[in-house]
């Protein structure tokens, strides 16, 4: 029932709206857990260079594959490097690259989707078939091709990931636009003679923003997994920079007797992904676009 907030509600500032949304998210256990994990990871990414107990690239053959101890909390890897240090540093690159990658995906996917939804007709048909064609290419093959042609620098990875993860957003944004496009306020704006740009900016975006943001948040966690897979395959971050995907790849052969070297990055990666997923879910619920609610009646 939405009845009770009908009467008293004033126009709120963006900040007030945001804090209300975050408060609503945190009022659910799953939202609170998700948010705490996500915030923990973000803070860790900022402070880890200052709190890391050891040098992440210091190789010491005498310390190879040590079990966890008071000195090396998570043990050491096959080159004698401290796993704890590398684990807390290992999320930084992934987080940064995928965050900006998601922003790019959100931007181009969202705008293209809204545009297609608005203009419809032939342009929409052609663009959507191109998007479909791209969707049918396995992304990892395409990524490998791009990376091997252009290298693994951040300037290549961010736009490439942004491009491949934006395709799905095009569809979501287009569908959300179709929901509002038939409403009379759009017809009214058209009849007044507003430009397409003005209709998109003033009439459509405020109504589809929520759906696209939630989709973007989900994409972020998928992209994180995708990026770690690239690293795992050796096409993401180059050694000796610590990265979870890379660490898992290096340590997986020694798993039977040095499980600590692989468990730590796995926990790091999966907790971050779970955190983002839970947050995105809670975000959707707080905005009122929950797909799992009961049918009315």
């Amino acid at each position: 029932m939405k009845l009770d907030n009908i009467y008293k509600e004033e126009k709120k500032s963006a900040f007030a709206k945001l804090s209300e949304i975050i408060f609503t998210m945190a009022s659910r256990p799953s939202g609170l857990i998700g948010l705490s994990i996500l915030v923990f990871h973000i803070i860790l990414a900022f402070v880890s260079p200052y709190i890391a107990p050891h040098d992440f690239k210091a190789i010491d053959p005498t310390l190879m594959l040590q079990a966890p101890s008071a000195e090396y909390w998570f043990g050491t890897d096959d080159l004698g490097r401290d796993v704890f240090t590398r684990t807390i540093l290992g999320g930084r690159t992934a987080l940064t690259i995928t965050f900006f990658g998601s922003l790019i995906a959100l931007l181009w996917g969202g705008l293209l989707g809204i545009f297609c939804g608005l203009v419809g007709g032939k342009i929409d048909d052609v663009v959507m078939r191109i998007v479909d064609a791209f969707l049918s290419i396995p992304w990892i093959l395409a990524m490998l091709l791009i990376v091997s042609l252009l290298g693994t620098s951040t300037e290549v990875l961010i736009p490439a990931l942004g491009f491949f993860y934006g395709k799905g957003i095009v569809r979501v944004a287009r569908a959300a636009t179709h929901d509002v496009i038939a409403k009379d306020f759009i017809v009214s704006a058209r009849a007044r003679g507003h430009s397409n740009f003005s209709i998109i900016w003033n009439e459509i975006i405020p109504n589809v923003r929520d759906a696209i943001l939630v989709e973007g948040a989900m994409r972020w966690s998928w992209m994180l997994l995708g990026f770690s897979s690239l690293s795992f395959l050796g096409f993401g971050v180059s050694p000796p920079t610590p990265d979870w995907g890379l660490m898992i790849s290096n340590a997986r052969g020694l798993m039977s007797f040095a499980y600590w070297a692989v468990i730590a990055p796995i926990v790091g990666l999966s907790s971050l992904i779970i955190g983002i997923n839970l947050t995105a879910d809670a975000f959707a619920k707080a905005l009122g676009i929950d797909r799992s609610t009961k049918a009315p009646v």
Binding site: K11, K183, D184, F185, V187, N202, E203, P206, N207
Partner: peptide, 8 residues
């Protein structure tokens, strides 16, 4: 339907 729900 004729008034945008997100506008004052």
């Amino acid at each position: 339907e004729s008034l945008n729900p997100n506008h004052t």
